[in-house]
Computed example of a mutant assay.
Amino acid sequence: MWTYLLFILIAYLLGSIPSGLIVGKVFYQTDIREHGSGNLGATNTFRVLGKKAGIIVTLADILKGTLAASLPFLFNQPELSALIIGIFAVIGHMYPVFANFRGGKAVATSGGMILGVNPLLFLIILATFLIVLYICKYVSLSSILTSIIAVITSFLLSDYGSLILTSILAVFIIYRHIPNIKRIVNKSEPKVTWI
């Protein structure tokens, strides 16, 4: 019981590490919360600080989720649920204690968590995200559609643990993107420019 609680706390603290804020302040002397959408996630980092910073923050946010979900295996506690523990990294990313509970939108950290639990599913959703993003050019819409496809894929694979996980993550992601949905409807949501 105490080990479970300790791992949940560690996962939350891992998720709370504000990658975008750290990269922005340390290397660019910029608080990305004061620019763009004001969000601490990778998408706003790309828009405010550029591709290099965006890639670094994306990888860091993915790693947070993967590391959190891997805690039971790293510490030889396979009886503990990686799904339950990993979810708290996503919560930490959305509501980070180190950044006044103003975090990202759960996409990259959710992906990292899935990578730690089901690498095949991660590859499927990564390919889905990139294809949808290329077609529609909206990061937010790609994230929402990918989260839904992750649920459907988990069901088709009869992976009911991942089905529960992806369903919870889809709810998080869709909820966090409600403002983006409104901007897509009124055509004010920024699009990705492919070069």
Rank of each mutant, 00 (worst) to 15 (best):
Y4A: 12
F7I: 11
I8E: 08
I8H: 04
L9C: 15
I10E: 13
A11S: 15
Y12K: 05
L14V: 04
I17L: 11
P18N: 02
S19I: 14
G20H: 12
K25W: 11
K25L: 15
T30Y: 11
D31V: 15
S37N: 11
N39T: 10
G41R: 02
A42H: 03
N44K: 07
R47L: 04
V48D: 06
L49M: 08
A53S: 07
A53C: 05
G54H: 05
G54V: 06
V57G: 03
T58C: 01
A60P: 00
D61C: 01
K64G: 00
A68V: 10
A69Q: 12
S70G: 09
P72F: 12
F73T: 07
L74Y: 10
F75R: 05
E79V: 04
A82H: 06
I84M: 08
G86D: 10
V90N: 02
P96K: 08
P96A: 12
T109I: 03
S110R: 01
S110Q: 10
G111L: 13
G112A: 08
L115P: 00
N118F: 05
P119L: 08
F122Y: 10
L123N: 02
L123G: 05
L126A: 14
A127N: 10
A127H: 03
V132Q: 10
L133V: 06
Y134R: 14
C136K: 03
K137D: 11
S140M: 12
S143W: 04
I144L: 07
T146V: 03
I149H: 03
I149L: 14
V151G: 00
L156P: 05
L157M: 15
D159I: 06
L163I: 11
L165H: 04
S167I: 10
I168W: 01
L169A: 00
L169Q: 00
A170G: 00
I174N: 09
Y175C: 03
H177R: 12
N180S: 15
P190C: 14
K191G: 10
T193Q: 14
I195M: 12
